[in-house]
Design a protein around this nucleic acid. Structure first.
Length: 772
DNA sequence: CTGCGTTGTCATCGC
DNA sequence: TGGCGATGACAACGC
């Protein structure tokens, strides 16, 4: 019976995960909250560390929460303060770094089968929190609930030392960075929350004892955690209003949703990141999955000598991969829109390929960031066709205001403060749960730019067949290993052997490796011609293009250089064809009577052929010195040499011609070499520019995504704050009559809507005036 | 035999 | 003005 129950539970969880992956919010929180009240503070997620000290002090001072844990007033008070702080802080623009996430994305399908690294990391993190949480019984937990949010932080895996309340800006920035890493690593606190939830369920089933959580979660629980990862991320879709029922439950759901919102906010993570660091770094060796899978999936980022947090390098790697991915997109615009590079987790928010299994391309961000399903549907028609638009699950949170909150928010100047008018469409157009993406236009523009980039890459001789091959290679779990394996060769061949300076900096070497090698292979295959490579290396030429191998064959063939490269002597041509027959006969042919038809004659012919026309002429004219001297001596020495001999006018003329032709010959060789170098440099410059363009495009998309996420957070927070406001009679304010005004000094004011509209107009006018 | 790459040479330009 | 380097154009050769 127990096993059956577990099976059903896991099946439900998997189904929940699946639903969450396609954008349907399954409110497990509600279920668990009602079923397991003590889990609430576990599930809810840590409160913002940004306000941790503040809340801690407040709670310690007032102790109101301990007296009335369900007191709406106090709850509203604390929550509102936290929300306001978040709203004030949301104006900071954050660019998520997503490289680690990409691997979580790819690992999810496997993670459902066998435990993978992030799940292990989560296990550790969870265990660290479990030590605090699971030890006490329910009664103790109840007291923890009364102790405040800061306790929740510790419960939820925040093992880092508490941060003092007066954070400097640098501290906050650092927190922000760490948070982004934290989120990118997929170890958001919401993951932890769900781990607790499931763990609690398991405890109820007596499938686990209280003391073995750490081992269990780090070991055999890896599978479940791999799935938890997605579900937890999904819980980050904090569209509140899931909790039906009484006011108390509503309040709880509000707080819960706010905490989930915090999980996606760049604040309050300072105490959590070290735990993630430990979890990530320690989880790698503790993996229980097959080594092959582990290496193929994790080695580029999380294993080996590479630091797991060398984000710059990882980012460069992923960039290069994405460049390859970008270049291989050569079909249609729609395909590009729907088939974003798998290395780009954020782009996979819209990138469920029509023929791709749903559970393979789902990004963690889709699962963890609130409201992503809105945009998801915008970009993925197939997902749109699925029963995603579950209005009941996506409705706003406050029952009394649920029907008007969308319009309320969209028309408030709070939103207008954050987003320019053209981006502030929010929910004006659609009354359903699906909010239009105000950045859709910009995103589309970015996508179009990317498409144009692809076209450019295709126009420049990109081989679609090899692109598809690379795509397959990359899609097969070993995407980064592909990159890593290609990078050294391309580096050694392109960057390392480059003799001429280029605009490509060292920073571009890593990022350009994949694409450069790709383009190299796209034409001929640079590594197959060993002779070519040797020649290139011997001459120190810029030997990274396949075409260059051909150029190099005709490269500098100065006799002195050829003598240094004996194997090249047979490469060069022998242009003795213009020699006058008379000269040949008179000068070179030995007396036929004394020579046998044998090796000597052949040798003579060979030597004869080795001589240039001018040498033959010089010999014919009995020039008393070598052509090498004629050509290479400086002018003064050359004149001296001429003065030493009594030469006829014909001899002098021939000597001058020989000198002229010899110098012109070398000049021609130098000229051709320079021409070749110029072409190669231009080619590389073009590649660099293409890389830069692709990088900038990706950054643009990232910025836009971040902006959209911020907007969603603001929207949710606004709804939370506004929904919690009560007038003197205890009734909620009508969103049609009031709006929240985000003041310049950081305060948030509740003002009548008429006034808010006026200020919104002013805000709109100001940018226009500035433009003028 | 033809096409292509390579090389040498010439004419020309600019320094 | 001549020398010299650079370079386009052409031709010849070899593969």
């Amino acid at each position: 019976m127990l096993s059956l129950k577990k099976y059903l539970t896991e099946g439900l969880l998997q189904f929940t995960i699946l639903l969450s992956l396609i954008g349907v919010r399954v409110d497990v929180d509600t279920y668990l909250t009602s079923q397991l009240p003590p889990l609430r503070e576990i599930i809810l997620g840590p409160s913002s560390a940004y306000t941790q000290t503040q809340f801690h002090n407040l709670r310690n001072t007032l102790d109101g929460y301990g007296i009335h844990p369900k007191s709406i007033d106090l709850d509203n008070y604390f929550t509102a303060r936290r929300l306001l702080s978040q709203v004030r802080a949301l104006d900071r623009f954050q660019v998520p770094t997503t490289e680690v996430n990409a691997w979580l994305v790819h690992r999810d399908p496997e993670g459902s089968v066998s435990g993978t690294q992030p799940s292990s990391g989560l296990a550790l993190e969870s265990s660290s929190g479990l030590q605090d949480v699971t030890g006490p019984d329910n009664g103790v937990r109840e007291s923890e609930t009364e102790q405040g949010f800061s306790e929740d932080l510790e419960d939820l895996g925040a093992v880092a030392p508490p941060v003092s309340g007066d954070l400097t800006k640098e501290d906050i920035d650092l927190i922000d960075i760490l948070w982004r890493q934290d989120i990118d690593l997929g170890a958001g606190r919401e993951v932890f929350d769900y781990s607790h939830r499931q763990k609690e369920q398991d405890v109820d089933k007596e499938l686990r004892d209280g003391g073995e959580q750490a081992d269990t979660w780090a070991g055999e629980g890896a599978e479940a955690l791999a799935r938890d990862l997605l579900v937890d991320g999904e819980t980050g879709e904090s569209f509140p209003a899931q909790v039906p029922g009484g006011e108390d439950q509503t309040a709880l759901s509000l707080e819960e949703c706010l905490r989930l919102l915090e999980a996606t906010c760049p604040f309050g993570e300072n105490a959590e990141f070290p735990a993630n660091v430990a979890s990530i770094t320690e989880a790698v060796p503790s993996e229980s999955e097959p080594p092959a899978l582990q290496n193929s999936l994790l080695s580029p980022l999380l294993t080996g000598t590479e630091s797991p947090f060398d984000l710059e390098q990882q980012w460069q790697d992923l960039m290069s991969i994405m460049e390859m991915q970008a270049m291989e997109v050569n079909t249609s615009a729609s395909e590009i829109l729907y088939n974003a590079p798998p290395g780009d987790p954020l782009s996979t928010n819209y990138s469920l390929a029509p023929n791709t299994p749903i559970n393979q391309n789902v990004s963690l961000h889709q699962a963890s960031l609130g409201g992503c399903s809105q945009d998801f549907s915008l970009f993925s028609p197939e997902v749109e066709n699925l029963p995603v638009a579950n209005s009941s699950t996506l409705l706003p949170l406050v029952p009394s205001n649920s029907t008007s909150l969308n319009s309320t928010f969209s028309s408030t100047n709070l939103a207008g403060l954050f987003f320019p008018p053209q981006l502030n469409g929010t929910a004006n157009d659609t009354a359903g749960p699906e909010l239009p993406d105000p950045l859709g236009g910009l995103l589309d523009e970015a996508m179009l730019d990317e498409i144009s980039l692809m076209d450019l890459a295709i126009e420049e001789g990109f081989n679609p067949v090899q692109a598809s091959q690379l795509e397959e290679e990359f899609d097969s779990d070993s995407g980064l290993s592909l990159d890593s394996s290609h990078s050294p060769s391309s580096l050694s061949s392109s960057e390392g052997s480059s003799s001429s300076s280029s605009s490509s900096s060292s920073s571009s070497s890593a990022s350009s490796s994949a694409s450069s090698s790709f383009s190299e292979e796209g034409a001929v295959g640079y590594s197959s011609d060993s002779e070519t490579l040797d020649l290139e290396e011997a001459e120190g030429a810029v030997g990274y293009q396949p075409e260059y191998s051909k150029f190099c064959r005709m490269s500098y063939q100065d006799p002195s250089q050829l003598s240094c490269l004996p194997y090249l002597e047979h490469v060069g041509h022998n242009h003795t064809y213009n020699m006058a027959p008379s000269a040949l006969d008179s000068a070179d042919l030995p007396p036929p009577s004394t020579l046998k038809k044998g090796s000597k004659e052949k040798q003579a012919d060979f030597l004869d052929k080795q001589m240039s026309r001018d040498e033959h002429r010089a010999r014919a004219m009995k020039i008393p010195f070598t052509n090498d001297k004629i050509i290479n001596l400086p002018v003064e020495e050359f004149n001296e040499l001429l003065s030493k001999y009594q030469l006829s006018e014909a001899q002098l003329s021939l000597i001058r011609d020989i000198r002229r032709r010899g110098k012109n010959k070398m000049a021609a060789q130098n000229c051709r070499k320079r021409k070749l170098d110029t072409i190669l440099n231009l080619e590389r410059d073009v590649e660099d520019l293409q890389r830069d363009k692709a990088r900038l495009l990706r950054e643009k998309v990232e910025f836009l995504r971040s902006l959209r996420q911020m907007k969603q957070k603001v929207q949710s927070l606004y709804q939370e704050v506004f929904g919690r406001l009560r007038d003197e009679n205890g009734r909620p304010y009508s969103p049609s009559q009031y709006a929240l005004q985000y003041a310049g000094d950081g305060s948030v004011l509740l003002i009548p809507r008429t006034m808010a509209d006026q200020q919104a107009r002013r805000q709109e006018r100001k940018p226009k005036d500035r433009r003028k």
